[in-house]
């Protein structure tokens, strides 16, 4: 292969990775940034004092003193926040599942006939001592959801004992009936997201959460989910005491 031929092939391959024009959702969210993202007051004050590009300009002693005072106030605020603590935000999305933290006590609505004992809702707390795999398709395409479901089904065949798989779809984007059938046939549960649940408005990307037997979140994946072998490996690790 000549240099020119390789060069062409490399460029073609890179062009093939090009995702195409920017999606409308991203354009809209980018347009909202300047409206919805407040510039921190400290930053505004800092810029008002030292001016733009101050890092390459010598500042006056008075400005330096003011900057140091601001820095001290900022440090004091951070220390106060750490000492006093802060209230947890309301549970609104899969982002609330944080590795190393207990799973949020959140009830997902059942889809008729899919939950044991006819419960109307289900949460991680309802499955004591179990490994729980929560899959959120979000706004993924039907094909992507079906592919992810197949990975879960494949993994479920080799998962440790007492592993529960829960597929949670928003009412606004229900899972295709044939995929739901596959999920149920494999002994996995489906549920609906609760009212007020925000399916990641910026991307609607899928996510996967694994909680250990003690109800603590072990792994959180977004967008790129593990394949079946990797998922089984994760479950094995999560099942260890």
């Amino acid at each position: 292969m000549t240099d020119a031929a390789f060069d062409r092939r490399l460029r073609d391959w890179l062009d093939g990775r090009d995702p195409g024009p920017v999606p409308a959702t991203l354009r809209e969210s980018a347009e909202r940034v300047s409206l919805q993202t407040p510039v921190p007051g400290v930053s505004r004050i800092w810029q008002a004092i030292v001016g733009p590009g101050a890092a390459v300009r010598p500042g006056s002693p008075a400005r330096l003193v003011l900057a140091l005072v601001l820095l001290a106030l900022l440090v004091a605020a951070v220390v106060t926040l750490i000492t006093v603590g802060s209230r947890p935000a309301p549970l609104t999305a899969w982002h609330d599942y944080v590795a190393g933290q207990p799973a949020p006590d959140l009830d997902f609505g059942s889809v008729a006939g899919t939950l044991p004992r006819g419960d109307s809702t289900i949460s991680v707390d309802d499955l004591p001592g179990a490994l729980v795999v929560l899959y959120f398709p979000g706004g993924a395409t039907a094909e992507r959801t079906a592919a992810d479901a197949r990975v879960l089904i494949q993994a479920s065949e080799h998962a440790p004992n007492a592993t529960a798989f829960l597929v949670i779809a928003p009412d606004s984007a229900p899972i295709a009936p044939d995929t739901v059938s596959l999920i149920h046939d494999a002994g996995m549960l489906t549920a609906a997201t609760p009212a007020g649940w925000d399916a990641d408005p910026s991307t609607g990307r899928p996510a996967l959460v694994i909680t250990g037997r003690g109800g603590v979140v072990e792994y959180v994946f977004a967008s790129e989910l593990p394949d079946a072998d990797q998922l089984v490996g994760d479950l094995d690790r999560a099942s260890l005491p």
């Binding site: 090009d18 920017v22 999606p23 980018a30």
Partner: peptide, 18 residues
């Protein structure tokens, strides 16, 4: 967005990064 997509190889991640 396109540059991020080529670097990251994943359109979801590209959206996030952008």
């Amino acid at each position: 967005y396109r540059l991020a997509g080529v670097i990251l190889g994943d359109r979801w991640q590209a959206e996030d990064a952008t």
